[in-house]
Protein backbone atom coordinates (compact mmCIF):
# COMPACT_ATOMS: atom_id res chain seq x y z
CA UNK A 1 0.00 0.00 0.00
CA UNK A 2 1.51 3.33 -0.96
CA UNK A 3 1.66 5.98 1.71
CA UNK A 4 -0.31 8.59 -0.20
CA UNK A 5 -3.42 6.48 -0.01
CA UNK A 6 -5.99 7.77 2.38
CA UNK A 7 -6.97 5.05 4.76
CA UNK A 8 -8.58 4.95 8.08
CA UNK A 9 -8.70 2.16 10.60
CA UNK A 10 -10.42 1.85 13.94
CA UNK A 11 -9.13 -1.06 15.91
CA UNK A 12 -11.20 -2.28 18.83
CA UNK A 13 -12.23 1.19 19.85
CA UNK A 14 -14.06 1.65 23.12
CA UNK A 15 -15.10 5.02 24.45
CA UNK A 16 -16.27 5.75 27.93
CA UNK A 17 -18.34 8.76 28.91
CA UNK A 18 -19.69 9.96 32.18
CA UNK A 19 -23.27 11.05 32.75
CA UNK A 20 -22.57 13.32 35.67
CA UNK A 21 -21.85 16.99 35.58
CA UNK A 22 -18.90 16.83 37.89
CA UNK A 23 -15.66 16.65 36.03
CA UNK A 24 -13.50 17.48 38.97
CA UNK A 25 -12.58 13.86 39.07
CA UNK A 26 -11.29 13.79 35.52
CA UNK A 27 -8.52 16.34 35.98
CA UNK A 28 -7.42 14.46 39.07
CA UNK A 29 -7.34 11.32 36.97
CA UNK A 30 -5.18 13.05 34.36
CA UNK A 31 -2.69 14.11 36.99
CA UNK A 32 -2.66 10.73 38.71
CA UNK A 33 -2.37 9.14 35.26
CA UNK A 34 0.93 10.97 34.82
CA UNK A 35 2.41 8.77 37.50
CA UNK A 36 0.70 5.44 37.08
CA UNK A 37 -0.44 4.34 33.66
CA UNK A 38 -3.35 2.01 34.06
CA UNK A 39 -5.98 1.31 31.48
CA UNK A 40 -9.36 1.53 33.09
CA UNK A 41 -11.59 -0.87 31.23
CA UNK A 42 -14.13 -1.09 34.00
CA UNK A 43 -17.07 1.21 34.45
CA UNK A 44 -17.51 3.06 37.66
CA UNK A 45 -20.77 4.60 38.80
CA UNK A 46 -22.33 7.11 36.36
CA UNK A 47 -20.24 5.92 33.45
CA UNK A 48 -21.29 4.19 30.28
CA UNK A 49 -19.75 2.94 27.06
CA UNK A 50 -20.60 5.24 24.16
CA UNK A 51 -18.72 2.91 21.83
CA UNK A 52 -18.05 -0.78 22.31
CA UNK A 53 -15.44 -2.61 20.33
CA UNK A 54 -15.74 -0.70 17.05
CA UNK A 55 -13.68 -2.20 14.23
CA UNK A 56 -13.92 -0.27 10.97
CA UNK A 57 -11.63 0.05 8.03
CA UNK A 58 -12.09 2.58 5.24
CA UNK A 59 -10.05 2.64 2.05
CA UNK A 60 -9.39 5.43 -0.38
CA UNK A 61 -12.50 6.27 -2.37
CA UNK A 62 -14.87 4.66 0.09
CA UNK A 63 -18.08 6.48 0.79
CA UNK A 64 -19.25 5.15 4.10
CA UNK A 65 -22.53 5.89 5.77
CA UNK A 66 -23.10 5.54 9.47
CA UNK A 67 -26.76 5.07 10.21
CA UNK A 68 -28.46 4.95 13.55
CA UNK A 69 -30.81 6.61 15.94
CA UNK A 70 -29.90 9.64 17.99
CA UNK A 71 -27.39 8.90 20.71
CA UNK A 72 -26.27 5.62 19.17
CA UNK A 73 -22.65 6.76 18.94
CA UNK A 74 -22.38 7.90 15.31
CA UNK A 75 -20.99 11.31 16.12
CA UNK A 76 -18.62 9.87 18.68
CA UNK A 77 -17.08 7.77 15.90
CA UNK A 78 -16.55 10.90 13.79
CA UNK A 79 -15.09 12.69 16.80
CA UNK A 80 -12.60 9.89 17.30
CA UNK A 81 -11.67 9.85 13.61
CA UNK A 82 -10.99 13.58 13.62
CA UNK A 83 -9.12 13.35 16.97
CA UNK A 84 -11.45 15.71 18.76
CA UNK A 85 -11.57 13.05 21.40
CA UNK A 86 -9.58 9.90 22.05
CA UNK A 87 -10.58 6.28 22.51
CA UNK A 88 -10.55 4.98 26.05
CA UNK A 89 -9.35 1.63 24.75
CA UNK A 90 -8.19 0.63 21.30
CA UNK A 91 -6.44 2.57 18.59
CA UNK A 92 -7.07 4.52 15.44
CA UNK A 93 -4.78 4.81 12.45
CA UNK A 94 -5.24 7.62 9.98
CA UNK A 95 -3.33 7.85 6.74
CA UNK A 96 -3.82 11.17 4.99
CA UNK A 97 -5.36 14.46 6.02
CA UNK A 98 -8.73 14.45 7.68
CA UNK A 99 -10.86 17.50 7.12
CA UNK A 100 -11.68 18.19 10.73
CA UNK A 101 -15.29 18.69 9.87
CA UNK A 102 -18.17 17.56 11.92
CA UNK A 103 -20.57 20.41 11.55
CA UNK A 104 -21.02 23.05 8.90
CA UNK A 105 -20.31 26.64 9.72
CA UNK A 106 -17.97 25.92 12.60
CA UNK A 107 -16.39 29.10 13.88
CA UNK A 108 -18.73 31.40 11.99
CA UNK A 109 -18.85 34.69 13.80
CA UNK A 110 -22.23 36.44 13.58
CA UNK A 111 -20.69 39.90 13.22
CA UNK A 112 -18.46 38.95 10.30
CA UNK A 113 -19.67 38.91 6.72
CA UNK A 114 -20.19 35.76 4.69
CA UNK A 115 -16.96 36.36 2.83
CA UNK A 116 -14.97 36.90 6.03
CA UNK A 117 -16.48 33.80 7.54
CA UNK A 118 -15.36 31.77 4.55
CA UNK A 119 -11.80 32.53 5.65
CA UNK A 120 -12.53 31.66 9.28
CA UNK A 121 -14.38 28.42 8.59
CA UNK A 122 -12.08 27.49 5.71
CA UNK A 123 -8.94 27.65 7.83
CA UNK A 124 -10.70 25.88 10.69
CA UNK A 125 -11.43 22.93 8.46
CA UNK A 126 -7.83 22.90 7.36
CA UNK A 127 -7.59 24.97 4.20
CA UNK A 128 -4.77 27.38 3.44
CA UNK A 129 -5.52 31.10 3.09
CA UNK A 130 -4.16 31.08 -0.45
CA UNK A 131 -6.30 28.10 -1.31
CA UNK A 132 -9.41 29.85 0.02
CA UNK A 133 -8.68 32.90 -2.11
CA UNK A 134 -8.45 30.70 -5.19
CA UNK A 135 -11.63 28.84 -4.37
CA UNK A 136 -13.58 31.87 -3.20
CA UNK A 137 -15.57 32.24 -6.42
CA UNK A 138 -16.39 28.53 -6.48
CA UNK A 139 -17.54 28.59 -2.90
CA UNK A 140 -19.76 31.63 -3.40
CA UNK A 141 -21.20 30.18 -6.59
CA UNK A 142 -21.98 26.85 -4.94
CA UNK A 143 -23.68 28.55 -2.00
CA UNK A 144 -25.83 30.68 -4.37
CA UNK A 145 -25.35 33.54 -1.94
CA UNK A 146 -23.46 35.98 -4.16
CA UNK A 147 -25.93 38.77 -3.41
CA UNK A 148 -25.56 38.40 0.35
CA UNK A 149 -21.93 37.47 0.68
CA UNK A 150 -20.84 40.83 2.14
CA UNK A 151 -23.60 40.86 4.72
CA UNK A 152 -22.98 39.82 8.36
CA UNK A 153 -24.03 36.20 8.77
CA UNK A 154 -26.17 37.04 11.80
CA UNK A 155 -28.68 38.30 9.25
CA UNK A 156 -28.66 35.00 7.36
CA UNK A 157 -31.48 32.53 7.64
CA UNK A 158 -30.51 29.10 8.95
CA UNK A 159 -30.79 27.70 5.43
CA UNK A 160 -28.40 30.30 4.05
CA UNK A 161 -26.03 29.64 6.92
CA UNK A 162 -26.06 25.95 6.15
CA UNK A 163 -25.55 26.46 2.43
CA UNK A 164 -22.51 28.64 3.00
CA UNK A 165 -21.08 26.11 5.44
CA UNK A 166 -21.61 23.21 3.09
CA UNK A 167 -20.16 25.14 0.13
CA UNK A 168 -16.95 25.64 2.12
CA UNK A 169 -16.86 22.06 3.34
CA UNK A 170 -17.11 20.41 -0.07
CA UNK A 171 -14.32 22.63 -1.38
CA UNK A 172 -11.90 21.23 1.18
CA UNK A 173 -8.94 19.49 -0.35
CA UNK A 174 -8.55 16.98 2.48
CA UNK A 175 -8.41 13.32 1.56
CA UNK A 176 -10.88 12.20 4.17
CA UNK A 177 -14.10 14.14 4.57
CA UNK A 178 -16.45 13.75 7.50
CA UNK A 179 -20.04 14.91 7.26
CA UNK A 180 -22.39 14.92 10.20
CA UNK A 181 -26.09 15.25 9.38
CA UNK A 182 -25.32 18.06 7.07
CA UNK A 183 -27.85 17.50 4.35
CA UNK A 184 -30.93 16.88 6.39
CA UNK A 185 -31.93 20.49 6.87
CA UNK A 186 -31.62 22.03 3.42
CA UNK A 187 -34.36 22.23 0.81
CA UNK A 188 -34.82 19.65 -1.93
CA UNK A 189 -32.97 21.40 -4.73
CA UNK A 190 -29.92 22.18 -2.66
CA UNK A 191 -29.95 18.69 -1.19
CA UNK A 192 -29.78 17.23 -4.70
CA UNK A 193 -26.87 19.51 -5.44
CA UNK A 194 -25.08 18.25 -2.35
CA UNK A 195 -25.67 14.63 -3.32
CA UNK A 196 -24.24 15.34 -6.78
CA UNK A 197 -21.24 17.01 -5.18
CA UNK A 198 -20.61 14.02 -2.93
CA UNK A 199 -20.70 11.74 -5.98
CA UNK A 200 -18.24 14.05 -7.67
CA UNK A 201 -15.92 13.89 -4.65
CA UNK A 202 -16.18 10.13 -4.80
CA UNK A 203 -15.05 10.17 -8.42
CA UNK A 204 -12.03 12.18 -7.23
CA UNK A 205 -11.29 9.11 -5.11
CA UNK A 206 -11.75 10.78 -1.74
CA UNK A 207 -12.78 8.95 1.37
CA UNK A 208 -16.03 10.20 2.82
CA UNK A 209 -17.64 9.23 6.10
CA UNK A 210 -21.20 10.41 6.48
CA UNK A 211 -23.48 10.28 9.46
CA UNK A 212 -27.21 10.45 9.07
CA UNK A 213 -30.46 9.10 10.36
CA UNK A 214 -31.89 9.42 6.87
CA UNK A 215 -31.36 5.97 5.39
CA UNK A 216 -32.56 6.71 1.85
CA UNK A 217 -30.12 9.58 1.61
CA UNK A 218 -27.28 7.31 2.66
CA UNK A 219 -28.39 4.59 0.24
CA UNK A 220 -28.20 7.09 -2.59
CA UNK A 221 -24.60 8.10 -1.93
CA UNK A 222 -22.79 5.57 0.23
CA UNK A 223 -21.37 2.26 -0.92
CA UNK A 224 -20.98 0.87 2.59
CA UNK A 225 -23.42 1.45 5.38
CA UNK A 226 -23.01 0.54 9.01
CA UNK A 227 -25.82 0.44 11.48
CA UNK A 228 -24.68 1.96 14.74
CA UNK A 229 -26.80 0.49 17.46
CA UNK A 230 -26.21 0.07 21.17
CA UNK A 231 -22.70 1.47 20.81
CA UNK A 232 -21.61 -1.15 18.28
CA UNK A 233 -21.28 -1.13 14.50
CA UNK A 234 -23.05 -3.70 12.30
CA UNK A 235 -22.63 -3.75 8.49
CA UNK A 236 -25.81 -3.19 6.50
CA UNK A 237 -26.53 -3.76 2.85
CA UNK A 238 -26.10 -0.64 0.78
CA UNK A 239 -28.11 0.50 -2.22
Amino acid sequence: MSSDEYTLKLDGVWKKYSTTDFFHKSIREEIVGLFNRKKDDTLSKDEFWALRDINLEFKQGDVVGLYGTNGAGKTTILKIISSITYPTIGSITVNGTVAPLIEVGAGFHPDLTGRENIYVNGTIIGMQIKEIKEKMDNIIAFSELAAFIDMPVKKYSSGMYLRLGFAIAVNSSAGILLFDEIMSVSDGAFQQKCIDKIKELKRENRTIVMVSHNLSLLRETADKIYLIKDSTAVPMSAG
Binding site: E116, Y119, V120
Partner: peptide
Amino acid sequence: RQLFIVLVWREFAVRYRYT
Protein backbone atom coordinates in the same frame (compact mmCIF):
# COMPACT_ATOMS: atom_id res chain seq x y z
CA ARG B 1 -0.15 29.08 11.56
CA GLN B 2 -2.74 29.88 8.90
CA LEU B 3 -5.57 29.14 11.30
CA PHE B 4 -3.75 31.10 13.99
CA ILE B 5 -3.46 34.16 11.75
CA VAL B 6 -7.14 34.00 10.87
CA LEU B 7 -8.18 33.56 14.51
CA VAL B 8 -6.12 36.57 15.58
CA TRP B 9 -7.54 38.61 12.73
CA ARG B 10 -11.06 37.47 13.62
CA GLU B 11 -10.67 38.44 17.26
CA PHE B 12 -9.20 41.81 16.40
CA ALA B 13 -11.79 42.54 13.69
CA VAL B 14 -14.75 41.53 15.82
CA ARG B 15 -13.57 43.53 18.81
CA TYR B 16 -13.60 46.89 17.06
CA ARG B 17 -16.48 46.27 14.69
CA TYR B 18 -19.48 48.53 15.26
CA THR B 19 -17.48 50.87 17.45
